[in-house]
Design a protein around this nucleic acid. Structure first.
Lengths: 202, 202, 202, 202
DNA sequence: GATGAATGAGCATTCATTCAT
DNA sequence: TATGAATGAATGCTCATTCAT
């Protein structure tokens, strides 16, 4: 659930525990205060010394990348879990909604997902690939079920998720607006295509 | 085209020129390097001393707000100019596209538009109101012309623009993906609503 | 009443007026806000541009020196005016009290008097000499009248005035303490000397 | 002799040493160059990085307050040590003299003692109280011994000490003047009161 | 002369990173 | 290994001083 960064040497039990605590604290702090939050604050939240943070993550950037990997992994896990759900459309839109909903007020998710595309490190590349693969499955099944138009591909789907997270963050304090905005986007994903909606599902 | 912020006392010619240069430089620097770029860098880009930047904008936040106002004003100008265009649908989607296209790699636009909703200062509030009003006109005309579904309101439109800018930024180096993602969103805006999409083309 | 700094070239009427306004403003501002107050603030208070301040006083230090000279001149004027007062003791202690009372909360007076001893510039030296001379007269008359012990000399008198100003500033918000502290010091000035106080009148 | 400010968690040995070095350097630098001296200079004098200064004293104001507390503590220590001296008068005037003598050229002491009355922070309040208490003992004993007039109270005594420090600073380069000025003040403290010197000691 | 915009050195403060304990 | 003190480059901002208008 929280393996060593690069499948490197096995950490001692307490070291592994500390690494996990730092990672969790970083996720919470960066989400709440933005990525400009200090490393010191992460250490405090994790209940460890600042030295420990830097022992596990040699730079702040590395820490951010690790948080990103963590987030992507959680998403990939969820996407994979939905791969065999009976309701393909529900699985697809449900996952999309979950991604968007978890993008919290400070838009870490959007930032973090945006970076994902850039493949900051090899580590992110690996997990991002896993996420894309899982997404491809969800998308394909929804398309075969006629719940999503056929011309959508994974790259634009990811781009739309990133943007929708931002949309949700923007409308954070007006849930109604948020719902309506998402509904419009989802209609676009369902629409048979415009103009000339010959559709592939009919 | 770049008047004093809030109709303060008229600046000397050289002062106005410098203010404009700083504002332009700030727009460029923050767009290129993000809002964390230093004020020094803005000064260097503008070719003025650091003191000059702070003379015109007493805090960095004020400078950011001024850039934001500038951006919003340009958008509002464009929206207003399109208010009487013969092709209401083209005006609406054209404006939307322009907004998105001008969101550059580092997503200043998104940040900046996001702030707009928060009405950081009185100055931003005023211009944001202007933008919303102009947007309302474009939207209404497109809806009357049957080019945009009738249940869309300005708030979600703004939220979608913010998100679409982010989407575009994410897909910055793949224009094809960008176009397809936007097409999907635009279809959602055109769709008569879902469920029950018997299609508007029949 | 406010002649040119160094008996230099005669200033134009408006220039002289501006110089006086700046000097007055500087006295007020430095007294109220301390000598760390900005030159800009002095200019604002005087209702002139910052350039005008620096035209008349080439550095901030020069401005402070000019304020000092102004203060010393006012004190010297008062001391000279008291030189022929019928009540020599009243004149002496009255003057001492006035000096102390005019030392306002921010202790500009103390600072300024302290500097006076250092003879910052030739100008201060000149006026400080005048003040010392006037003080010598007051002191001598009070001693001859038997109101002040005979072994007091001008240097220690000045030092005591500087200190008493500080004492008054310290006790600024407790007038009672201030009065009692001064009374003690005055008793010391009257006392025939200790030990061996065979009387001061011989 | 230089414990943590307010009984916080015990610092590591090296940290305590550095804190003391910074405090000492600050005392020296502020005394020599005035309180406007830069924190950089304090760091340089202490032989530590600027970050170290701010780690121990989060603001320059806090550093000044700490120097003040340090000074007050030293004074209080001395006053307490003199509380049982056989010669009550000698103890009183000796302490007064020491206070004045240690007020160095730039009058940090005066500034610092002046602040003491204002009770800048809780820390200063505590130590200032201690000093006042110790002073009260010295004063009372000297009064009982007939060495100091009976109507002197601690508040005016403090005020006079502050002023006398300034007097001494003013006369710094003329020890003779300094001695004579102090002698006059001390006579005032001994005098049975004026006018109407029925005295309480006769 | 008067004005105030421009300048840039200087300051307090923060924070990622290193290293002695 | 964990800790947290030390470091110093970098940042936002101020202000005395200069100079073009």
């Amino acid at each position: 659930m929280m393996p060593e960064p690069e499948a490197g040497k096995p950490l001692r039990a307490d070291a592994r525990r500390n690494r996990a605590r730092v990672l969790e604290a970083a996720g919470a702090v960066f989400a709440a205060r933005g990525v400009a939050a200090s490393t010191e604050e992460v250490a405090r939240e994790a209940g460890v010394g600042i030295g420990t943070v830097f022992r596990h993550f040699p730079t702040k950037e590395a820490l951010l990348a690790a948080v990103l990997v963590d987030v992507l992994r959680a998403l990939a896990d969820q996407a994979e879990a939905l791969a065999t759900a009976p309701d393909a459309g529900g699985a697809f839109f449900g996952f999309f909604t979950r991604v968007v909903e978890r993008s919290n007020t400070k838009n870490l998710y959007a930032d973090v997902l945006a970076e994902a595309g850039v493949d900051v490190t090899a580590a992110t590349a690996v997990i991002a690939r896993r996420l894309r693969a899982a997404l491809a499955v969800l998308l394909d099944r929804a398309q075969r079920a006629g719940e999503v138009r056929g011309d959508v591909r994974v790259p634009e789907l990811l781009a739309l998720m990133v943007g929708a997270s931002r949309t949700a963050g923007y409308a954070a304090n007006d849930p109604d607006v948020r719902v309506r905005a998402l509904a419009i986007l989802f209609d676009g994903l369902r629409a048979p295509g415009y103009p000339g909606a010959e559709g592939r599902s009919q």
